[in-house]
Amino acid sequence: MAKIAIDPITRIEGHLRIEAKIEGGKVVDAWASSTMFRGIELILEGRDPRDAWAFAQRI
């Protein structure tokens, strides 16, 4: 049994890490992690709702 990690996954927008468990040459389990967090939901709290589009579209 082997475990591999590919980090960063490239040619995508955003940050992604993939870990996979390999048994007998086959992937038997896998985990995806988003390795970046900004907390835009927390930043949006209490702001003028008319401004929300500008914040949320930057995701």
Partner: peptide, 13 residues
Amino acid sequence: HETIMAAAGHQAE
């Protein structure tokens, strides 16, 4: 450049 490069994972790094 992560978004456009061919290599991934440890090769990219």
